[in-house]
């Protein structure tokens, strides 16, 4: 049987599809377990909440630093580049609007998701993969504690909650970064910076859509990170390659979904 390039591509594509099915079956179990987290009686719900809070710390709070710093820089660059372009058309008064729209619609959710995938996503994959490799997950199972409920679901839920919040913070700090460069450094009128923005940034079309993107990205990045860790080959090499896969797959998924969502959201008007 000859093994041509077509054969290989076909095999590769089939393997991808099988893996996606695997990941979807995993997602089904994960969603059931996550859904049931808060609904257990009394002290069990408090225990579940504590797990999620713990994960919110390692996934959300610890990612805050890189998000805020990146946000400021991106905002400042937008201010600088935006000013340079608008000034040629005499429209530098619209700088505030430019910065705000760029951030709320696109850069806020997308850049945050990419940074999140790199920092928090890879950490999640590595952590879970390592637990699998050292048989901690198996040990938990044998102690009649479901690792999906105890380990995986809280991390997924934490990622889902964190990303939209981080994206909002990125956006706001970026807008202020643009303000610092545009108004303080380049002389755009402060009042105009804000008034143009407040006039034309639509709450539903821009802010809410950006928030929706944040939630969708949070869902997808957390799913990928957690799945790759859970499915990793239980060796150190296996964990390393799973971590890389998380960052690459999550980043590509974010960019692809961004295009689809933008097309759907903007297409209407």
């Amino acid at each position: 049987m000859t093994d041509t390039a077509v054969h290989r591509i076909g095999r590769w594509a089939l393997a991808r599809i099988v893996r996606l099915g695997h990941a979807t079956a995993f997602l089904h179990v994960l969603l059931v377990r996550s859904w049931r987290l808060p609904s257990r009686p009394g002290p069990a719900a408090a225990k579940a909440a504590r797990l999620v809070v713990h994960q919110l710390f390692s996934v959300g709070v610890l990612t805050l630093a890189i998000i805020l710093v990146s946000g400021i820089f991106v905002g400042m660059v937008l201010g600088l580049q935006g000013y340079n372009t608008l000034v040629d058309f005499g429209s530098e008064a619209s700088l505030g609007l430019l910065v705000a729209l760029s951030l709320t619609r696109e850069l806020g959710p997308v850049v945050t998701a990419l940074l999140f995938a790199g920092r928090a996503g890879s950490a999640l994959t590595a952590e879970i993969g390592l637990m699998k490799a050292t048989e901690q997950l198996a040990g938990m199972e044998m102690m009649a504690v479901n690792p999906m409920t105890r380990v995986i679901a809280p991390r997924f839920v934490a990622g889902l909650i964190s990303l939209p919040l981080l994206a909002a913070m990125f956006t706001v700090i970026g807008i202020y970064g643009g303000y610092v460069v545009g108004v303080i450094q380049l002389g755009v009128d402060a009042g105009v910076y804000w008034s143009q923005m407040q006039d034309r940034v639509d709450f539903y079309d821009d802010v809410v859509n950006g928030l929706i993107k944040g939630v969708v990205f949070g869902f997808v990045v957390s799913w990928i990170a957690v799945f790759e860790g859970y499915d990793s080959v239980p060796t150190s090499a296996g964990v390393a390659s799973a971590t890389t896969r998380t960052v690459v797959s999550a980043s590509l998924a974010v960019l692809g979904l961004d295009f689809i969502m933008t097309a759907l959201m903007m297409g209407g008007s």
């Binding site: 705000a100 919040l165 706001v172 804000w194 407040q198 940034v201 639509d202 709450f203 802010v207 928030l211």
Partner: peptide
């Protein structure tokens, strides 16, 4: 951040 976006940035 979300409230800032809603009330100070957008036309809400």
């Amino acid at each position: 951040a979300l409230t800032t976006l809603a009330f100070r940035v957008s036309n809400l």
